[in-house]
Nucleic acid binder design. Structure first.
Length: 280
RNA sequence: CUUGUUUACGACUAU
């Protein structure tokens, strides 16, 4: 049975979901028992493949199989429901797991906070953050990143920045994703100067800007009409040895086109393949 | 090397 799980995990990695289902049926047919991990791996594979209905079917199957879902099962399903836009159902499931005596951990909370924030309910996301702290489930860097992202997407750059400061003052270590989310949040709420300031402060926090960091700022500067600053930052990125991605080129090209600079846009387009990122 | 959580461009959603 445990070798079946190993096999399922390998199939999950390569994304061969059909084969996973086959293997599951095969093992059942041969009378092997599926444990909670078997179901978790399979359900997660189905979710990744966008096969939500089948994932739900296997979740129901667990019941008949006398196999109790654990915190991983619930976390996977919560994430799935969120992506399907069923955030309320996800909250119901969260309550259900608690009722059933399955204690949510930091990943469960992170998943729920993420989908709640992405649905635009930042208030409720922050409430869950508070709730987990009260329950002694300690927030990690994911928790902060998720919250900062949610706040940013709602245009609450100030709140995102405040949370970042709280994070630092409580001894949490930010990572490059924290900065990317925060820089994006600030840019969206018009605080581009502060966003640029943060870019400079990253090394002080042990973080190195990556291609996403630069692209976020390059795009924001361009969208704000400052093509000069946008292009300068692109040059800086290259000078610092950070490789641009298709996103970077696409963003620059888009903003140049919006500004009417078609020749320059075309010039950049011609450079993409040589730069290692062919047009996508 | 047995399972779960977060990021950037574009896209019928723009002014």
């Amino acid at each position: 049975e445990s070798s079946c799980n190993l096999f399922l995990a390998a199939l999950d990695k390569v994304g061969n979901t059909d084969m996973s289902c086959k293997l599951f049926n095969e093992m059942k047919a041969r009378g092997y028992a599926a444990d909670v991990m078997t179901y978790n791996i399979l359900i997660h594979s189905l979710v990744k493949a966008g096969r939500v209905e089948e994932a739900e079917k296997y979740f129901e199957k667990m019941r008949d199989d006398n196999c109790s879902p654990d915190k991983v099962t619930f976390s996977v399903l919560i994430g799935m429901l969120g992506k399907a836009g069923k955030v309320e159902t996800a909250h119901d499931l969260f309550r259900e797991m608690i009722t059933k005596g399955v204690a949510p951990d930091v990943v469960t909370y992170n998943s729920l906070i993420d989908i709640t924030g992405k649905a635009g309910n930042t208030q409720q996301a922050l409430q869950l953050f508070h709730e987990m702290e009260c329950k002694g489930v300690f927030p990690d860097v994911y928790t902060y990143n998720i919250l900062i992202y949610g706040l940013g997407k709602q245009g609450q750059g100030k709140a995102a920045y405040d949370l970042f400061k709280k994070m630092i003052s409580t001894g949490h270590t930010p990572d490059v994703i924290t900065f990317n989310h925060l820089i994006d949040a600030l840019g969206r709420s018009g605080a581009v100067d502060l966003a640029l300031e943060l870019l400079k402060h990253m090394p002080r926090h042990g973080c190195t800007p990556d291609h996403a960091t630069y692209t976020i700022l390059i795009d924001r500067l361009g969208k704000g009409g400052d093509l000069k600053a946008s292009k300068d930052l692109f040059k800086e990125m290259l000078v610092k040895g950070c490789k641009p991605s298709s996103y970077t080129f696409n963003s620059l090209i888009d903003n140049l086109c919006l500004g009417g600079f078609y020749d320059e846009a075309h010039h950049l387009y011609n450079q993409m393949t040589d730069a290692g990122c062919p047009p996508n």
